[in-house]
């Protein structure tokens, strides 16, 4: 009895007497300590601002004076009396639905070429990845603006190959959005790398068997490569679609929504409302509407996944 008590006490004492090293070495403590910078950062810079923005979206808030609660007024305003909201949604959908598939097709095409073994393929992979790194930068956006200017390099190339043109690519309501789409398609590098990786995963035995059966290159692509790539295509599609909806820099620097709001991206409009017109509460509401739209689009993509993406093993 007394000895039992003694051992229990000893155990307790022992437990208390752990050194700092031992204490830190406990699995749950080490985990929490090591991840704390991220967790704290996540709460401070993601969760708290998100909750605040949800609150602001229900308020009349102009940054300069304290927010006043107005309920759903901002959301109602967006859907009933803001033609620019509708316009910017249309522009953003057009941009995402055109640029993302084009970018994926382009990425796949280049990946198909680069998957072949050659001495320079590593070099080319790096070169083709470059636009993805620099493409989102302000410098490239400004370069793009100059390239598509009336006296820019695009027009002078066209003139040199005999097409007399002085079209203002950025000033024309039907061409301006395409300069942004081309810039987006040009940044195909990260999708390309993912395609490259999964192209290499396709067992060569399948192609060998197909060749024995007399299948041509074309049908090999349609019957073997593409079906086996569908999970990768799906992944790329979801990721790029979200990025497409959130595109900001290019539009903000190159066109600012001009001409006549034909390139007004949703995020740029949101920025204008929040920080140029000081309708910050309304801007926050627009942000939450965007979250809802992205959720729905992603949800639809996932729902249709089993209809076209191959999920079986090899």
């Amino acid at each position: 009895m007394s000895s039992k008590q003694a051992t229990v006490r000893e155990k307790k004492l022992h437990a208390r007497k752990k050194t700092l090293g031992q204490w830190l070495n406990q699995e749950h403590v080490a985990g929490v300590v090591c991840t704390s910078p991220f967790i704290i950062g996540f709460f401070l810079f993601m969760v708290v601002p998100m909750i605040l923005s949800l609150y602001y979206s229900l308020c009349n808030y102009n940054i300069l004076s304290p927010p006043q609660f107005t309920g759903l007024a901002n959301y109602i305003k967006a859907f009933t009396q803001d033609p620019k909201f509708v316009k910017s949604i249309c522009v953003t959908f057009f941009f995402a639905l055109v640029s993302v598939p084009l970018r994926l097709i382009f990425a796949l095409l280049v990946a198909m070429i680069l998957v072949r073994k050659s001495k320079l393929s590593a070099f080319y992979r790096a070169v083709y990845y470059l636009p993805s790194i620099i493409g989102g930068s302000v410098a490239v956006a400004i370069l793009w603006k100059r390239m598509f200017a009336m006296d820019g390099v695009i027009n002078s190339i066209l003139r040199n190959i005999g097409i007399q043109t002085s079209i203002s690519w950025l000033g024309n309501t039907s061409t301006a959005i395409w300069t942004l789409i081309i810039l987006a398609v040009w940044q195909f590098g990260s999708s390309m790398l993912i395609f490259l990786a999964s192209l290499k995963q396709i067992p060569s035995t399948l192609y060998e068997a197909a060749e024995v059966d007399g299948a041509k290159k074309g049908s090999q692509f349609w019957r073997i490569t593409l079906p086996l790539l569908t999970p990768t295509i799906f992944f790329n599609l979801v990721m790029q679609m979200i990025n497409g909806f959130l595109a900001f820099t290019q539009c903000y620097i190159i066109t600012q929504g001009k001409p006549m709001d034909s390139t007004l991206f949703y995020t740029v409009y949101m920025y204008q409302q929040s920080f140029e017109f000081y309708n910050t509460g309304y801007g926050a509401a627009l942000a939450w509407i965007m979250l809802a739209i992205i959720s729905v689009v992603t949800g639809v993509l996932f729902a249709t996944k089993k209809l076209w993406a191959y999920e079986g093993g090899l």
Binding site: K145, R146, F148, A149, M150, D151, G152, S168, L170, G171, N172, A176, T255, K258, P259
Partner: peptide, 22 residues
């Protein structure tokens, strides 16, 4: 033409048509 301004930074002295343009 308004198209000219689509490629400029409005408010920039250096890009004003008075001093800049081909």
């Amino acid at each position: 033409s308004p198209e000219v301004f689509a490629e400029r930074t409005l408010g920039s002295v250096e890009q004003d048509p008075l001093v800049f343009g081909s």
